[in-house]
């Protein structure tokens, strides 16, 4: 994409998202109800995780701060992806099933940018609060000395994780070009990934580890960064160079997502006779 085009797309995105936010803001009670529902939903998950890990002295050989750190690295990027990219979930029901995707394709702008902008919901930012708080708490309670380098690596891990989940969301959306009714099943890629990522990889049996490490490179979102950043038990014996792998993995996955999205659009058939 040429730079000018990219700039035009960004302007369009900002414009539509701005309008969406202003319209949400007209119904403030509704907005705050939804926002708190989002916060509570994620908070409940965190509470359940804390209850569960408190049943055992160490979970997979990791202490509480290490598990919470893992949780934060798994969930904060997911929530960021949820705010900006998960709108592609609407593709199946709101656009492909109805045939409304036609009008999206007719407009002289990227189909993905249009959907992400048109379906943007500010209330999703509520999902950022619990994992952000968990990250802060874990950072203070981890038994390590922080340095600028380490802080940089946290930022890198969050960025890599956000990109990996975003790619998974786009892949999940692309699948619905072929199987519009399979939308719920694609939740395994997104919500399932995020849930599985909240626990240390080494407590899973080998075949689940193989899926999470290789088939879907989920392990690179939170597990790999946590092993090296929290300097914790590494029973799988991951090599040290894995520490810099997440952004690379993210780029590969994004390439896969772009190819699937483009093939999906070519495959799209409108509804009707």
């Amino acid at each position: 994409m040429r730079l000018e085009t990219a700039r035009a797309e960004l302007r369009l995105y900002r414009h539509i998202v701005g309008a969406r936010i202003r319209s949400d803001w007209q119904y403030r009670t509704s907005f705050f109800t939804y926002l708190s529902a989002q916060v509570i939903f994620i908070a409940f998950e965190l509470v359940a995780l804390i209850i569960l890990i408190s049943l055992v002295p160490k979970f997979g050989g990791w202490d509480r701060a290490e598990i919470i750190f893992l949780y934060a690295l798994a969930t904060l990027p997911f929530s960021l992806g949820d705010v900006f990219i998960s709108e592609v979930e609407r593709l199946a029901n709101t656009y492909v099933r109805t045939g409304d995707f036609d009008s999206v394709l007719l407009r002289p702008s990227s189909a993905l940018v249009q959907i992400l902008a048109l379906e943007f919901e500010l209330r999703r930012i509520g999902k950022l609060l619990p994992p952000a708080a968990a990250l802060g708490w874990a950072a203070i309670n981890l038994d390590i000395t922080w340095s600028a380098g380490k802080a940089g690596m946290v930022v890198l891990a969050l960025l890599g994780g956000t990109l990996i989940y975003s790619a998974l969301w786009v892949i999940a959306g692309s699948i619905t070009f072929w199987m519009v009714d399979f939308r719920e099943g694609t939740n395994a890629l997104t919500y399932g990934s995020q849930f599985a990522n909240q626990y240390p990889l080494h407590v899973y049996p080998g075949w689940i580890r193989a899926i999470m490490g290789w088939a879907l490179p989920l392990a690179f979102v939170a597990y790999v960064p946590t092993v090296f950043l929290a300097e914790t038990a590494n029973p799988l014996g991951l090599p040290a160079w894995f520490a810099v792998a997440p952004p690379v993995v993210a780029l590969v996955l994004i390439a896969v997502a772009v190819v699937m999205w483009r093939t999906g659009i070519r495959h799209y058939q409108s509804t009707g006779s």
Binding site: L52, L55, V56, F59, G60, M179, D181, F182, R183, E184, G185, T186, N187, A188, Y191, G192, F195, A196, Y199, V203, Y204, P205, I208
Partner: peptide
């Protein structure tokens, strides 16, 4: 749609069962 729903329930079942059995 039904099959895809049963699939996602199974995936979540597997993850939860693994964690609970581990505990």
């Amino acid at each position: 749609a039904t099959a895809s729903g049963a699939f996602i329930n199974t995936v979540f079942g597997y993850i939860r069962a693994t964690i609970l059995v581990y505990v």
